[in-house]
Every structure is written in structure tokens, then in C-alpha cells.
């Protein structure tokens, strides 16, 4: 068996999610190559070559891949990947965008968002917002799979010494072009890989009040998330949404503040090791999954939390 892992990156650094995808590839077993497609992405290729368990890094460095357009990546990966038994990527928004194109071009099914590998052709994935867990067997000769990074402990980032090979396959479908982007600038840890996440919901009332959470997050080195209601209300940007249709997180500690605990929200955080809920309604469903629940007004509890943490840390 031979597995092609598509690296997730921003042209300058390798996303940690890729290390989790390599871990999933190791669980399948076989030779693991990593494809780095981007523009001026040599540093990413270098980082990928150091990852544990990688045999070879293929680099497709071209302007056509600079913005990870799904049409171009789809054609590239379908071409490079057709010699492999498995093609894997993370289930981030980039992987979700191009991988189904790869599957369609190869005329095979895709298995989305796996959280476990049972064997080379059998995978475990949540359905119905995590309310059911399906074990699925794929019969196609090439398995196209997206991996939920929180399901797999990342392989070591250092220690490997894979060879690096340039490939000059240029696929520019000419169907789409990049216009612009609005990146949420923040020095905080990435939500998906943060060890601690503190999230606010509709109970926060407005965007300014999220500053209270920021102060706590700064003390804990935490990432900040939100419920859909908080994003829809415009308190915070969309990339902070945790849940079925937002980001999936599984930190050591998840603190939900003013969040009721709708199933769609729980789908994004119920694999966290320890869950804390702060809510003034003792009937809120979030308490049914919380290891530690505090029934309190958040506008009193969060400032107190900041004070207590200053003392304790």
C-alpha cells in the first residue's frame, strides 16, 4: 500500500493538522508520501520532510496553487494520486473543498471526516452531528479520505528525513481566480490545536464583552471560540464558530460561557477532555455534558475567574 497525504499549509508553515493526517496514514499502514502544493512553499516542504514516518515529499510549487483553488488542486491531486492506494487530507475547509473533486475525477467515493481507522478499507466517522458513529467500508481501488485531525494524535514534527522531490505538474483549470481575503488576525493559538479553548455564546450579549474572555484566554494561553448564535449576531467572526458546521475542537479543557449546549454545538466540542460550563440557567443542556458546571451570571463569574486564575497560576 502507498498513501499520499496532502499537506495543509499557508505557503510558509505546515499546519499541525497534517501531522494528524500522517498519523491516520500510519494507522492504515504502508509507504507515506506527502504532497505540498502551493507557491513559494519550500519551507513547508522542509518541515514535512522532518515529520515522523514520511518517506518522500513531493513539491508542486506554482502560482496556480498559491491560493489553493479547488479546481486546480483537484486536477493536480487526481493526477499525482492515481498511483496510490489512498489519498488523505485534513478535513479543514481546504481539504473539504478540493478532495471531493479528486474523488469525482477518479470516479471513486470519498469517506469524509474519519475519526478512526479500522483497517485499510474500513473507517469510523461521525454522522448526524456526532449523534451516531458509522463504520464504513470503501470498495473502490483508490480510497479518498478526509481526516478529522482531533481523532488522531499528531506524529512527531521532528526526527524524520524524507527526500524532497520537485514535480512540475501544472494544472490551471482557468475556472476561478482569487480576488481577496479577510484573515482574522490574532496571536492566539489556533482553535483547532489549542490545548485550552474558551467559548462564548449568545449570553455574551455583544462583541465587546468577548474582551472578558480574551483576558481569561491570555492567562491560560487559550484559543477563543463561539457558538453559532454569537457569530450570527455579529459578536465575533465566522472562523470562531465551534460545532457541527463550524470547527471541531478537542482540547484538554473547554470552557463554555453563556452557551446553552444545542446538539450542533456539542458536535464540535464534546470530545474535549474536560468541559466546564458557566450558565445562569441550571436547566441548560450544556450541564449534561459538563464535568464542572457553575450556575452563575457570567458577568460576575468571568471577572472572578480571571482574578482566581491570577492567584492560582
Amino acid at each position: 500500500m502507498s498513501i499520499l497525504v496532502i499537506a495543509e499549509h499557508d505557503n510558509s508553515s505546515l499546519k499541525q493538522a497534517t501531522l494528524s493526517v500522517v498519523a491516520a496514514a500510519k494507522a492504515i499502514g504502508g509507504d507515506i508520501d506527502v504532497l505540498v502544493a502551493g507557491e513559494n512553499c519550500a519551507a513547508v516542504a522542509e518541515a514535512a520532510a522532518k515529520a515522523e514516518g514520511v518517506a518522500k515529499v513531493l513539491v508542486a510549487d506554482n502560482a496556480a496553487y498559491g491560493h489553493f483553488l479547488g479546481e486546480n488542486l483537484g486536477e493536480l491531486v487526481a493526477e499525482v494520486g492515481k498511483g496510490y492506494s489512498h489519498i488523505l487530507s485534513s478535513a479543514g475547509t481546504t481539504g473539504k473543498d478540493f478532495m471531493p473533486r479528486v474523488a469525482a475525477l477518479l470516479d471513486v467515493a470519498q469517506v469524509s471526516d474519519i475519526i478512526r481507522v479500522e483497517s485499510e478499507d474500513t473507517f469510523v466517522r461521525p454522522i448526524y452531528a456526532g449523534n451516531a458513529i458509522a463504520t464504513v467500508k470503501a470498495s473502490d481501488s483508490i480510497k479518498v479520505v478526509t481526516v478529522r485531525p482531533t481523532g488522531f494524535d499528531p506524529v512527531a514534527a521532528e526526527g524524520g528525513s524524507a527526500s524532497v522531490e520537485q514535480i512540475d505538474v501544472v494544472k490551471d483549470a482557468g475556472l476561478s481566480s482569487f480576488v481577496g481575503e479577510q484573515k482574522a488576525e490574532s496571536d492566539r493559538p489556533d482553535l483547532a490545536s489549542a490545548g485550552i479553548v474558551i467559548s462564548g455564546g449568545r449570553g455574551m450579549q455583544n462583541g465587546d464583552n468577548f474582551k472578558m474572555l480574551e483576558q481569561v484566554a491570555d492567562l491560560l494561553g487559550a484559543g477563543i471560540g463561539a457558538s453559532r448564535a454569537a457569530v450570527d449576531a455579529g459578536f465575533v467572526p465566522n472562523d470562531m464558530q465551534v460545532g457541527q458546521t463550524g470547527k471541531i475542537v478537542a482540547p484538554q479543557l473547554y470552557i463554555a460561557v453563556g452557551i446553552s449546549g444545542a446538539i450542533q454545538h456539542l458536535a464540535g466540542m464534546s470530545d474535549s477532555k474536560v468541559i466546564v460550563a458557566i450558565n445562569k440557567d441550571e436547566e441548560a443542556p450544556i450541564f449534561q455534558v459538563a464535568d464542572y458546571g457553575l450556575v452563575a451570571d457570567l458577568f460576575e463569574a468571568v471577572p472572578q475567574l480571571e482574578e482566581e486564575l491570577k492567584k492560582a497560576l
Binding site: T93, S177, V179, G180, E181, K183, A192, P237
Partner: peptide, 10 residues
């Protein structure tokens, strides 16, 4: 709506 924020395509 992408992981890092928003991205516009033509």
C-alpha cells in the same frame, strides 16, 4: 467562509 476567515473568488 474558510478556516482563517473569509476568502473571495471570481
Amino acid at each position: 467562509e474558510v478556516d482563517g476567515g473569509l476568502m473571495t473568488l471570481s
